[in-house]
Amino acid sequence: MNRVVHPIEQESFRRLRARLDTSRFPPLTRAVVERVIHSAADLEYATDLVTAEDDLVKGHAALHAGAPVVVDVEMVAAGITGRETVCRLKDAGSGPGLTRSAHAVRLAYEEVGPGALWVIGCAPTALEELLTLDASPALVIGLPVGFVGAAESKAALRASGLPAVSNVSEKGGSAVAAAALNALLYHPTSPDPLASPEENL
């Protein structure tokens, strides 16, 4: 994805790297960690995020091959740059034992089937519901926020063995979830090993 990087963004990443050495991370992990930190101005994400480079490589390939991107709420969709997303929250209802967010995940899965990238930044129940489905996701970005269920749903995601980006703490949110997906969107499909980090913003 070719895009023009604004000087303010370049300076923000320069300051981030001056305060935190991210060079120890492999390329896609570094891209995700840096963009999540940039979105929240929170350096703690460097140790709070949990992911694996192999998962990101596969998710990156699926994303650039055109795999669907499903989000739990419109706020996540609004933060994703230059890519259509599926969000079925407006169509969902709630009932005993099923939140609107969980129902929306069911509806989205019926629409996109297996192999999608799922970006969940708001509702722990959306992530919990995804884990009950045979969705065979290309990648799950599971970064819901909250004091009730958020940390637990992310722990369940890690325990599931699915390819994922998550974090240990209760923090998260739509902006950081979108940022993690954007990191994969912005990262070149054939990165130049001699390119400066700024060229891969």
Rank of each mutant, 00 (worst) to 15 (best):
R30W: 00
G93P: 09
A31V: 01
N182W: 00
N167R: 04
I141V: 15
V105A: 13
G121R: 03
P188S: 02
R19V: 02
S169A: 11
R83T: 13
A104G: 10
K171I: 04
A108L: 10
D55H: 13
G161D: 10
A159I: 01
D91C: 05
S166N: 01
G161N: 09
A31S: 04
E9Y: 15
S101D: 01
V73D: 12
A108E: 14
A61V: 01
L130N: 08
G146I: 09
H103P: 02
V73S: 10
A178P: 01
C87E: 11
T81N: 06
R106C: 11
L181Y: 08
A108H: 12
A159K: 10
A178R: 00
L107H: 11
I8N: 11
N167H: 02
E111P: 04
A46N: 05
Y45A: 12
P163K: 03
V176M: 01
S190C: 10
R24W: 09
D54S: 07
A155E: 08
T125W: 03
P96V: 02
N200E: 03
L89C: 05
T125H: 03
L157M: 02
W118F: 14
A177T: 00
V148L: 08
S12Y: 15
Y109S: 08
E198K: 04
R24N: 02
E44L: 06
G146C: 11
P163R: 03
V145L: 13
E74L: 15
A178Q: 00
G115E: 07
E34V: 00
G146Q: 13
L185Q: 06
D72S: 03
E11N: 13
D72P: 02
